[in-house]
């Protein structure tokens, strides 16, 4: 978890706090989707096993929920420095080198996220133009699966650019380094 009080002062600038709030708020809402999915999948098991009446919607809606939730939490992972990283060498490096590596990381994330958001957007428009749908009873339009890619990666790009600006212009670094994997 973040310890805002330890962060350099620029991180408490209203604009930065607004971004933090937005990114974390979206991530929290999205996280609850997983709990909701757990509930509807349990419902599916019960109606199938007990009442022998499987649903038409649980499997597909769960996947859709998973897609939305996961893409929308990506930016928060960067915000909280929760991105699995081999920290061995970068931790051992001096402050200047590790700041430089961090800047490269932010720039790389921003560039990749923009590219993915853009091509995701093009794919989405393509599915809209030909009316692409899933061949299931729900027959969901495919854009509902592509939209979260666009939103999620756009948000990630904004977060990465903000971190880059904070680091390069104000020299402000978050307290937490990136972290190794905790599974």
């Amino acid at each position: 978890m973040t310890h805002d009080q330890h962060r350099p002062r620029i991180r408490s600038h209203p604009l930065v706090r607004l971004l933090d709030k937005a990114v974390m708020g979206i991530a929290e809402l999205s996280s609850w989707i997983y709990l909701l999915i757990g509930a509807i999948v349990t419902y599916e098991v019960v109606v199938r096993y007990v009442f022998n009446a499987p649903t038409h919607w649980v499997e597909e809606m769960s996947r859709l929920g998973m897609v939305w939730a996961t893409f929308l939490i990506l930016a928060a992972c960067l915000n909280q420095r929760q991105l699995i990283t081999i920290t061995l060498l970068s931790n051992a490096a001096g402050p200047r080198v590790s700041a430089a590596l961090e800047a490269i990381t932010f720039a790389l994330i921003a560039a990749l996220a923009l590219v993915i958001a853009w091509y995701g957007f093009e794919s989405m428009m393509q599915t809209v133009s030909i009316g692409r749908r899933t061949n299931t009873t729900l027959s969901l339009p495919y854009w509902s699966f592509y939209l979260p890619i666009v939103l999620g990666f756009a948000l990630l790009a904004v977060q990465a650019l903000a971190e880059l600006v904070l680091l390069l212009v104000f020299g402000a670094r978050a307290n937490e380094p990136f972290e190794p994997e905790d599974i």
Partner: peptide, 16 residues
């Protein structure tokens, strides 16, 4: 709430 948000962050982190 902490459990939910923690699981969300770890999930997105792994799925990335």
């Amino acid at each position: 709430r902490e459990a939910v948000v923690g699981a969300g962050l770890t999930t997105a982190n792994l799925l990335l």
